[in-house]
């Protein structure tokens, strides 16, 4: 599903690379946790997958798409196949829960009828029934992140990328969000999650990749957090 071959990323010519010849293979339907100290290069890795950043060297293939041959004008199409969730939710403040989720379908040109059919199912999946008409500021952080996750999965992407989705949440809400990600993973979506939360990593018992100074130092099938 995801293949990285000796990928390096240098933001500036004279600084150390943010990623240094990373090779990585993720199978379909895997749940992968990426850990590492601040500035290790986790976000950079995820940004390469969403084509927010281009690698300095190396090869990236995601879902059969070779990024070397990907034209700029096709990047939106690529991104519609990858769901993304951010630490700060990034919801549209003037839009209701329903509209925020529908937005992901609107930009894909889906018909209003399809939208009316699809969105309620996802709202149910993330457990926000009854909150469709509320605005983001009327929701707790955990609920806002659920909206963001709903928006990310409403197009049924094969891959879901979550960069510190629990970074702004208390432990209880964090765990709820992680459980939701596990549920989405069970329905057949590959999940990539970065986190600094030791408890989450240890409780999940999933594949853990540790990055340090732009290099993969550990890659364990049922890993735990290591300092």
């Amino acid at each position: 599903m995801i293949l990285l071959d000796r990928v390096s990323k240098k933001y500036d010519k004279d600084t150390k690379p943010a990623l240094d010849r990373i090779s990585l293979h993720v199978e379909p339907n895997e749940f992968v946790i990426i850990v590492g100290t601040s500035g290790a290069g986790k976000s950079t890795l995820l940004k390469l997958l969403t084509r927010e950043e281009k690698p300095t060297t190396g090869k990236i293939v995601v879902g059969g798409i070779d990024y070397d041959t990907l034209k700029d004008k096709h990047i939106p199409l690529l991104r519609r196949k990858i769901g993304v969730v951010f630490q700060d939710f990034k919801l549209l403040p003037q839009r209701t829960v329903f509209e925020n989720i529908a937005f992901a379908l609107e930009i894909a040109g889906m018909s209003n009828r399809e939208i009316r059919n699809t969105v309620p199912k996802v709202i149910e999946l993330v457990g926000l029934q009854g909150k469709e008409k509320q605005f983001p500021h009327q929701l707790s952080g955990g609920e806002q992140q659920r909206v963001a996750i709903a928006r990310a999965v409403v197009r049924q992407p094969k891959i879901l990328i979550a960069d510190e989705p629990t970074g702004n949440l208390d432990p209880k809400h964090s765990w709820d969000i992680v459980r939701l990600l596990e549920k989405i993973n069970r329905y057949g979506t590959t999940v990539l999650l970065t986190t600094h939360n030791v408890e989450i990593v240890n409780r999940l018992k999933r594949r853990v990749i540790t990055i340090d100074h732009g290099k993969i130092t550990h890659d364990q099938a049922r890993g735990s957090y290591r300092q």
Binding site: T50, K73, P76, R80, V84, K90, F103, A104, I107, R151
Partner: peptide
């Protein structure tokens, strides 16, 4: 700009 950033990341094209 945050909103625009988000739109780009979830795959909105130029016209949108």
């Amino acid at each position: 700009r945050d909103e625009i950033e988000m739109m780009k990341l979830i795959g909105a094209n130029k016209e949108f």
